[in-house]
Simulated assay, not measured.
Amino acid sequence: MSLPRSSYDPRRVCLNPFPNVSLGKHRRTIGVYLSGALFALANWTFLDAAILSAHAHSPYTAPGQPQEDAPVHVAFVDWVPGIFSLLGFLIVNLIDKDRIRGEGFGAGDERAVWRARLFLFIGFACMAGGLAGSVCVLILKYVMGHFAEQFTYYGYANVSQNVAMMLSAVVLWIAQSGSNEYEYNLTL
């Protein structure tokens, strides 16, 4: 081992520990508000693209000519990745954190811990599938379709929605995993 024996812990996963960032006693509150802001930003960007798509016209019409319909619109296939990310977000944040660690009520039930970890994996897999699906929609529908920049915005908004929703889930998970500022630890 390259680490000195005094700082080596066989339970450690990473060679370099994560930095210890202290936000004070309001860490949990800040995390929850930041997660909510990311979630709102995620859905706002996609809804902005969907509303723009509903009112879009082709940019290539000459003055005095009737407006032509836009060559591409946000369709159901654009909504599917966001739905999967939202489903994953809900699954991940509805899991009891003590079950994942094997603590709390019913800590002796090894099957409950396994099921909680399985649902956590399914939630993150749904979010990763939503992100991968949004990248595929962006490439296959908007980039390879050779549309104008105003129409490729719909695909970029879809990807940014899924990235922000994933970040929101991670921030909320970390915020909820920390101790509450109103929690008291009484030991005898």
Rank of each mutant, 00 (worst) to 15 (best):
D109C: 01
E110Q: 10
F76V: 13
G36A: 06
S160K: 05
E149R: 03
Q150E: 12
H26F: 08
N185H: 13
Q150K: 07
S168I: 12
A116R: 02
A50P: 03
L90F: 09
L41Y: 06
Q150A: 12
S179Q: 15
I174G: 07
L188R: 12
L172Y: 07
L118A: 08
N20P: 00
S53F: 04
W79V: 15
G133S: 13
R101I: 13
S168D: 06
L138H: 02
S177P: 00
R11C: 06
Q67T: 01
S85N: 12
S22T: 08
L131V: 02
Y156M: 10
R5L: 12
K141W: 02
V170W: 02
D98H: 05
G31T: 04
V159M: 06
L94Y: 05
T29N: 12
A164T: 10
D98T: 02
V13L: 14
F89H: 06
A169K: 00
V80P: 00
F151N: 05
I100H: 07
C136G: 04
Y33R: 03
F121I: 08
W173A: 15
S134M: 01
F39D: 07
V171T: 13
N93E: 09
D98R: 00
E149N: 04
A49Q: 11
L34F: 13
S160P: 05
T152A: 05
R117H: 01
G123C: 08
I83K: 03
F39L: 15
